[in-house]
Design a protein around this nucleic acid. Structure first.
Lengths: 161, 161
DNA sequence: GATGGGATCTCTAGTAACTAGAGCTTCAAG
DNA sequence: CTTGAAGCTCTAGTTACTAGAGATCCCATC
């Protein structure tokens, strides 16, 4: 039986995130101490690790939920799990292709920047004119928002390129 | 002078998105008809195209705002624009590398799925055990949330792999 | 000039997956 | 027994939009 802090440390999940997962029903409500603090059984460590690993792989929580449901019933066919994984793979490949084209365009833009004033800057100019694009639509990497890509530690602090 | 619907059609931007951009100050408040409807000058088409193109390239709105500010002052050095573009490129490359590793792991998982029951399913098992990972952390593609990847049309409808 | 229906208006709320902070209580080490 | 770290709940904010309700407007046709 471990407290939320230990669970957090054991899985690399932030404490508020654990509570959030509980709130949305991904983690079961744990036992509580007489003082109302959460105490987790070791099995919850595995469950949370599973969730985090899936998140690292880019699975949305809805899919993880489906996977967890599957896991609760070991005699079922694993067809669904396979399907989910294949979808995720397709998604990843789509994003890879899209990013590759973005990379090309960004490189081209940067290469052409002579470093003068904004008036002659190729970066600005290129961005201003979609007609110059290599691909006309950049492939629309994904449509699921606010996620879809592996979540991250938030320690970077960068404004993000 | 065109209405919001025409601007929408001319730029491939949804109408509510245009209003949203106005709300957050990316687009200036346009003139209005006596009946309170927005009428846009042709210059706004270009500005909105610029914004959309940047979004397609994965730039967050904050960066686009910076770029637009630069563009408003053509005599300034384009150093900042260059820096922003380089950051964005670095970001894209980081995500590319990360996705490549995800792809590998997903492929491996799927290849090993023999199609039996969940109990023997390699997909479930692999997901359950982070220790089997190829990379231990999958590279943490990015930390800026709820965006950071090119937005998309939302027409896919897929639950997203 | 009337009319009708598509386009627009504002406003609120919802999405995904968290994160941050306030203000208070509990636990455990010394 | 004290004290400070860790935990509690609750609200609100983040990003970039999207959806819907209910009212109004514009313009093309008759």
């Amino acid at each position: 039986m471990l407290g939320i802090g230990k669970l957090s440390a054991a899985t690399g999940t932030k404490v508020p995130t654990i509570r959030y997962y509980e709130e949305i029903g991904l983690l079961p409500e744990p036992e509580r101490t007489s003082g109302n603090q959460r105490r987790y059984a070791p099995a919850q460590v595995d469950r949370l690790r599973f969730i985090r690993h899936c998140r690292d792989l880019g699975f949305p929580l809805a899919d993880i939920r489906a996977l967890l449901d599957l896991g609760d019933d070991p005699d079922r066919s694993c067809e669904s799990a396979d399907t989910i994984a294949r979808h995720q793979l397709a998604e990843v490949e789509r994003r890879l292709a899209s990013l590759a084209s973005l990379r090309q365009e960004l490189c081209r833009m940067i290469d052409q920047c002579a470093g003068g004033t904004v008036a002659d800057c190729r970066v600005i100019e290129t961005l201003a004119d979609h007609a110059n694009c290599i691909s006309d639509r950049h492939g629309h990497p994904d449509r699921r928002d606010a996620s879809g890509r592996p979540r991250a530690p938030d320690t970077t602090g960068s404004t993000a390129a």
